[in-house]
Amino acid sequence: MANEERKNWRRRLKVPISALQGEIITIKTMAEHIMEPGVRRDPETGVIYPKKIIDLVICRFNGKQIYKSHWFSGVSANPFMSFKMKAITSGLVEVEWVDDYGQSSYKKAVIMVYDKNGKKIIPMKLDKASSIKEVM
């Protein structure tokens, strides 16, 4: 039982590590979930299994929502989805899956965007005096 519960929470997110500026990248997502449609019956007892699906998938880039999708019971089990994004600055990609019961889970990945000259493009501007610059 514990193993099954754990299975419903495993998520996968594939984002390329680096990209050129202005390039269109693909983001692949996969959630391991039963996606019970609420129509199936138990063959012995005839009891309908209660509906449990992933309703909502949100993608955010640097905290701003760039893509959203509503799902209904027609999406297959272990739902796979891939979509596109335009790489302008390097930053954080977050994908959030929200359940029918309001449970949400998320996965994040970092993408580095380079200039044509091979220079990193970072969204925030750092002061000259700050010591963070050496780290970046």
Binding site: I24, P37, V39, F61, K64, Q65, I66, Y67, K68, S69, H70, W71, F72, S73, G74, V75, S76, P79, F80, M81, S82, F83, K84, M85, K86
Partner: peptide, 25 residues
């Protein structure tokens, strides 16, 4: 299908291309 609607996708200008792949029942 008994419930004909499957999915809705909301795009913004930031998503560089409106193309999606998905698996359905």
């Amino acid at each position: 299908n008994p419930f004909p609607e499957i999915a809705r996708f909301y795009f913004t200008p930031e998503s560089g291309e409106a193309s999606v792949a998905i698996r359905i029942r």
